[in-house]
Design a protein around this nucleic acid. Sequence first.
DNA 1: GCTGGGAGAGGCTTA
DNA 2: TAAGCCTTTCCCAGC
Lengths: 259, 259
Amino acid sequence: MELVEAKRKIDEALERGRFAVVVGNCRVKYEGRAASKLSEGDRVLVIKNDGTFLVHQTQGMAAINYQGPGASISASMETAADGDSALVLSAFRSKKSGVKESIVVRFASVQACESWALKDDRKLQLFGSERQLSDLLMQDLNLIEPGLRPLQQESAIRKGTIDILAEDREGRLVVIEVKRREAGLDAVSQLSRYVSELAKRKEKKVRGVLCAPRMTPTAHAMLERDGLEFFKLDYVIGNPSAKIRGLQKKQQTIGAFSD
Amino acid sequence: MELVEAKRKIDEALERGRFAVVVGNCRVKYEGRAASKLSEGDRVLVIKNDGTFLVHQTQGMAAINYQGPGASISASMETAADGDSALVLSAFRSKKSGVKESIVVRFASVQACESWALKDDRKLQLFGSERQLSDLLMQDLNLIEPGLRPLQQESAIRKGTIDILAEDREGRLVVIEVKRREAGLDAVSQLSRYVSELAKRKEKKVRGVLCAPRMTPTAHAMLERDGLEFFKLDYVIGNPSAKIRGLQKKQQTIGAFSD
DNA sequence: GCTGGGAGAGGCTTA
DNA sequence: TAAGCCTTTCCCAGC
């Protein structure tokens, strides 16, 4: 496809706010929070109405260069010193932090360039997030330990946010950290931070329980050394809901929906 | 475009290992580590040769549903009870962990469906990563403090990996943690973990220095309470290299390349 | 192969 | 707005 023709199509797509895809041989340059260069190769460029700008290589899941919503996108023709011309598509963005970012894609040739007016107002419904598991646990903390009563969910302390704060049979505070997947060192650090902060503030012993499907051995060692506890969180992911195994009370259907 | 025609094109693309893009009205269902549903709307599906499978909505940077390299992709026609037919594109993958994942995209209509044989063997060259900044600092630790001598870079201890291990004028061990962006509570936790682990092992006082462009206030408070230190890391990102401001020794050009 | 930890991480929620 | 922190995070490097 002729570069000029591709430019015309892109200009039209940008003007009309369409979703556009450009396929061709290009070089890519990025400057912003970091900097990068990518020399010549065939790539697929995705441009969305909201300013999203994605450069995809033929392999790998993540876009190799990207600009999020809010970028301003422009197209221009460029003629190099050797007389070769190129279609240049670029995305600029100024972040609130003051950082300016730019991606410049120089197409030497274009295999395809198309755009569409797409309509989509639906949102993804996700099941099995950490927040959902936390909500389910809140319904009956007896699963973790008989007599455990919930005090607060998502309570903010100076050093972060406690997933669930509870009280045990002896009236001790229990900090519960929920992880939807295997817990590592970072999770133990996090819990440890909350427990010591709370213990200092309340001037009494505070328990800490890490709820996760499993833990790495090193994390488990650190957990025990810090006097914290582990509770195996056994759950099943369904569609359209997640369930914790062993919960005695009838679980509310979270995230149920009609379609 | 006819659904059957789209299916034929997809089959051909899959067979020949091409990069394919499908645009149309669809529903999406995901089951795996979590589960999700997305009801009817116009979306763009990206299929790569390596099994990468991305569903993009009209807004937002991230793919709303995805499967990484290694997925097996298939296309089929389906006829619903009401007689409406659909083009079903799906991606399956079994992770090493044993988790099976699937994405099923049901297209009720297709606006465009195309594929290309793309060639690209180049890799992104990135400047200003944390590892690069660490490399630069290693060249002259005097910037942080006169008399500081490097002992080791990237040394693994039981509880993680220390960026830079050094020795100060008085012969004390100094753990240096480098962050390319603002450091938060997690960074302080990390450094704190390394320092206490090393102090316990060596049975002597160990210093900890957090090198970052800046810190959040809460993180700074925690740093001071833990007896750790902060060094403001002032750097500039260029293309094709990153430089730390104030480094006295001539900085090696890191990441320079010819193109 | 497990584990830890970075990433131009992005994005959401709450103080 | 800033800060914490979750993510189907992905990804790589080291042991």
